[in-house]
Design a binder for these strands. Structure first.
Lengths: 186, 186
DNA sequence: TATTGTTATACTCTATAACTATA
DNA sequence: TATAGTTATAGAGTATAACAATA
């Protein structure tokens, strides 16, 4: 009796498709041995070289305590550097290394592939429409263009925790001289 | 120099807006003292009364071990019942209680409010367009209409864990006779 | 005293294995 | 032997407090 076929609510479709897209992006990023938060950090540092961990924490909405681990991991891979800040000896100035630049380019390529895959079922006109509509909602909700709320959420498939045995490029703490002073806690 | 204003990639907007919508839904659900997975379970049981926990687990993509806790919580609140299955004494037949029916209606109301809020910046025509475009992507990705991938993700604001002290309606295990046999582990 | 980076701690969700009762 | 529900356990993310060095 209803001429238009019933469709799930838009809010539900947004949650479902958005969650799926996030998961797929994490999958596509996994071959680089990076998770979405890593990619977000690299990008933020590239745009704003020398920013502090505090600034990064506020910008990406990642807690400082979690950022320490993520920055450690990126530094262990040689993708970023913690440089001493000349003005304030408390803060680190975060910078991309050349290797980090290369990684960022790989991430950008994966981002384009991801975009193509997600938009595959749409025509060019439809992509234009969808982009405009999503942007309208994002702006109404006060979302900042380059940041999502809750970066670490929507877990990436970092492989099964149980599979970590002879792993080749696994992350291990305490590999080399990271950070300035040991600052050994009590 | 570019006539069209540049816009973030659609895949990114989807992730951002979808994550935000999920978080808002969890917020709107919080006054009922329910999280999104609880709502999904109630709805699934309403549609398919008497289904087993295994079936529910497969349908909602929640691990059986996690389902035990969620079903416990709903049963403690008197929203659902575990009835003995006459055919197979291993399985529980899950049913809504009258109180569960009432809760489901409250959830539906909240769902409508949520839909209105998310779609607020759009005209009726735009809502129609957006719904059709999202459905197109969802179908292309093989997403099942009523289920999202990763139900428990995108954390709800269940209140700060630290605030659990004199809480009124907090969940406590072992309150009443749940389940069939004690099945005391070794 | 306040701030930056850090460690410690607790809770939640995810994921797997193992176990009991039943088929 | 296989299956339903459950428990135990490990890992990762979220969140807060507290700490040392520095401002």
């Amino acid at each position: 009796m209803q001429s238009r076929p019933s469709r799930p609510p838009i809010a539900f479709l947004l949650t479902q498709v958005g969650s799926h897209a996030a998961g797929k992006f994490a999958e596509r990023l996994a071959p680089l041995d990076l998770a979405p938060p890593h990619a977000g950090i690299l990008r933020a540092i590239a745009v704003n070289a020398g920013m502090s961990q505090q600034a990064l924490s506020g910008y990406l909405h990642i807690l400082p305590s979690r950022l320490v681990t993520l920055v450690d991991e990126l530094q262990e891979r040689g993708l970023i550097e913690r440089r001493d800040s000349p003005e304030d000896r408390r803060v680190y100035a975060l910078h991309l290394t050349p290797k980090g630049q290369t990684a960022l380019e790989a991430i950008a390529r994966i981002g384009r592939e991801h975009e193509s895959a997600v938009c595959a079922p749409l025509t060019d006109d439809e992509r234009e429409q969808l982009g405009a509509l999503l942007l309208k909602i994002a702006e109404a909700e006060g979302l900042v263009p380059g940041v999502h709320p809750g970066f670490g959420r929507m877990g990436p498939p970092r492989g099964n925790p149980r599979d970590h045995q002879g792993g080749a490029s696994e992350l291990s703490r305490d590999s080399g001289k990271l950070r300035r002073a040991p600052r050994r806690g009590k």
